[in-house]
Every structure is written in structure tokens, then in C-alpha cells.
Design a protein around this nucleic acid. Structure first.
Lengths: 217, 217
DNA sequence: TTAGTTATACTAACCGGTAAGTTTTTCTAT
DNA sequence: ATAGAAAAACTTACCGGTTAGTATAACTAA
């Protein structure tokens, strides 16, 4: 029962809207993002945008839900492919780094929500954030049970992972700093190696239980 | 010559404007912050705000410069009071945590600039950010020279410190999450202990050279 | 017919910035 | 010391432009 062509068109339009909205929200924040600009950027009439998605807040929530869900899928896939807790934590760091680099708009929205105290986050979105905290919690508890991780507050660990990954892997501000030419040549903040491997190195060493071996690299 | 009464008044007015502006910019971002709202909140007429400080961008830069300078003073004082590199890095983490908690508006502005890629940062501000990176760099190089720290990219270390501290010590989003009642009771993300000591524990262990002793706590 | 689509135009509210004029403080000349 | 000029601080009211959201009318394709 259904004109699948039309349904595909509908889904495709919605997709283009959400992608453009993610960019504009990321660049300018909720207040700074213009609905006209979003419509213009994805080649969709503004009225059509309201027809397909809804008002600005609804659009914003839809963008976040879509991105969080994709992120959770990536993280879960990475966790399932890893065997022991150490590998799982490394996999998580690498997955988070990948998400930051390949879906740059998303982490910028997260940063903005951290700044605003979640002013524009609806229940639906909060729920999904909490679910992702649960993934880190599980890894940490498995590691502690196996004796390879120290007994550390998993919520703080989660925040450290998120904050560390976003700060080290994010490109926009780093680009701005490098382009400003303010760094001395020998400081070379660009080409800082893979942030993911750096984080795996430092954070895993920081979390590891002393019994299970010290610094590897 | 000494129009000290008026000069004090002038300085005080400017101070009140900058304090209110910091809050409003932190809450709503550059685009979302209303000049009227800032004026209202500090009890200063809007035209007077333009008279004392300047337009919105000038005001924003003034807020950032003031907060970065204060932050650098706090960090430098903490570093000077510490003896060896390990103490210095711990002192830096504690100082950063204090800054996040006692001047909550500032780190929210930093988060917003990380999100926007420094879209509203003028040269004056970038310069100061780079100077703070230099503080971390110095500590790391001293530690490496003394053989107590591993050879890690100091720029990435700096980003990890900033990101880790802001993510773990920031209150606004955490409050929102806790108030949403989405966490199971046993997860208790509130009362997570002192984030500063948590970070000193994890990150210092992650950075320490294997030769200089392993996990302490 | 009907759902999707476009283009245009409208509204009501808001926002950054300014002009013009008033009051207060400080400086200066006598 | 004090009148009066000069400078600084302040208020009110307003302007031009933008924005979220809606309405309408015409068009397209299933």
C-alpha cells in the first residue's frame, strides 16, 4: 500500500533538511540559526520545511535525535567488535573520535548544549544522552570486575572521554588558531598525530589497574 | 588631577556591564544574547552601554579578554606555588577546575567558541589563548626533562586538560540531567566526588613516566 | 482528487545601533 | 571661592533591518 517513490522523496527531503539544519545550528547556535538559511542551503522552500519537520525547536530536536542515534550505533558496533575491557575502551575512544571528525556538526551541537546547560534539550534527547553514558558505565564495570581497571566513578570517566575526545579531535577552532599564525614554528600544533591514539595511550594508562601492567608505549 | 569619584564610577559601571554580558553571552551565545537584556540585567541604559564599552562585538571581546586574563593569573599563581612538575600539573588541573566552578560564565564562552570555530574571536583573544597553551607546554617539557613525564604532544595534553576539566567540572548540563530524573538511583551522577582530584588521579597516572612510579591512590 | 511543491508576500515581534537632548561632574579663569 | 565653560554621564525615543511563522495561490505528478 504505498507509493514508495513518493515516500522515498519524502524521506530524502527530510534528510536533506536535517543535514542542512545540523550545519547551520552547529555554526550559529540555536538562536543564531536562521530557518531561511537552512531552507536556502538545502534547496527546500521554507514553507516546505515547516510542512515536513515542524517549527525551529522541533527541527532542532530532530537533528539531535538523528545524530545521537547514529553515534550510538557506531559506538555499539565498535564495542561489540572488541573482546576485553581494555580493547572496548580503546574502541570507544576511536569510535568517538571518528564521530567527531566525520560528523563535525554533531559535536558542535553537543558543545553548544554543554554551554547552554541543555536549554534546548527535550526529554527525548536527554534520554538518549543518558543511554550513551550507560555504555561507558558498562565498560568500566566490566573492567573493574576483571581487575584491569581501577575503581573510578564511571560518570566522570564518561565526561572525561567525551570532553577529551571533542577537545583533541575537533577541527574548527584548531584551524582558526593555526591560521592565525600565532604559534611559533617549532610548536606546530597541527600535525599532532592521531588524537585517538593519543587518548587511548594517556587515558587507558590512567585508568588501568597497577596489577595489570603499566605503560605500554 | 584626580577625578577619582567619576573614574571609580566609570570603572564600576564597566565592571557591572562586563559581568552581566558574560552571563548573557554564556547563556545564549553571541547571536542569542540581546544587548537590551544585558543592559537590563546590570541596570544600565542601553545607550550607556554603547557609550562605555562599544558595540556587541567589542563588548564580547572585552568580556573574553577580562576572563582569560583572570584565568591566566590564577593558573600562573598556582604554578609558581608548586615545586616539581607533577605538583605543577596537579596545581594546573585544580586551578582550571576552580576557574570553571567559580567563574561559570567563562567556560561556557569557551565551549561556544570551540563550537563556532572561534567565529567571534579577535586577534587579541586568540593571542591570549595561545599564551595559556604555553603554560601547559612549559610544565610538560619540564616534566619530560626531569624524567617524570612521558614524551607526549603538549598541545594535545593541553586540549585534554581543558576538555577534561570543563566536561567534568561544569555544572549546568549536569544539573539539567540530574533534574530530569533519568538516572537510575544507584547511578548517582551527582555527588561524584571532586572532579579535580579525579582528574589529577587519572590524567597524572596517564602522563607519568613508568620509571617514576605507578598508580598512587 | 490528492499530496507534495514552489514562489511570494505578509505579520508581529524583536534587535542592534543611533540621534538628540538633559543632567551631572570636573576644570578653569578670575 | 565661584561663575561659567567644557567634558562626561545619562535618558528617551526612534530607525532600519531581520526573523519565525503563516497565508495564499498556482503548479505538478500519481
Amino acid at each position: 500500500m504505498a507509493p514508495s517513490i513518493q515516500r522515498d522523496r519524502r524521506a530524502d527531503t527530510r534528510e536533506r533538511i536535517l543535514a542542512a539544519a545540523a550545519e547551520v545550528f552547529a555554526e550559529n547556535g540555536f538562536a543564531g540559526a536562521g530557518v531561511d538559511e537552512i531552507a536556502r542551503r538545502c534547496g527546500v522552500n521554507k514553507a516546505m520545511l515547516y510542512y515536513h519537520v515542524g517549527d525551529k525547536q522541533t527541527l532542532y530536536t530532530a537533528v539531535l535525535v538523528r545524530n545521537i542515534d547514529r553515534a550510538r550505533e557506531v559506538i555499539e558496533a565498535a564495542l561489540e567488535a572488541a573482546r576485553d575491557p581494555e580493547e572496548r575502551l580503546s574502541a570507544m575512544l576511536r569510535a568517538l573520535t571518528t564521530i567527531v571528525r566525520e560528523a563535525p556538526a554533531y559535536h558542535r551541537l553537543v558543545l553548544r548544549e554543554m554551554a547552554s546547560g541543555g536549554a534546548h534539550l527535550e526529554h527525548e534527547v536527554l534520554l538518549r544522552f543518558v543511554a550513551i553514558v550507560g555504555l561507558t558505565r558498562r565498560v568500566m564495570e566490566e573492567g573493574r570486575a576483571a581487575g584491569v581497571f581501577r575503581d573510578l566513578n564511571p560518570f566522570l570517566i564518561h565526561l572525561l572521554l567525551i570532553g577529551g575526545v571533542i577537545a583533541t579531535a575537533a577541527q574548527p577552532l584548531r584551524r582558526r588558531l593555526v591560521e592565525s599564525g600565532l604559534f611559533a614554528p617549532e610548536q606546530q600544533p597541527d600535525a599532532p598525530g592521531d588524537p585517538a591514539e593519543f587518548l587511548v595511550d594517556v587515558i587507558l594508562n590512567g585508568i588501568r589497574s597497577p596489577a595489570s601492567g603499566g605503560v605500554v608505549s
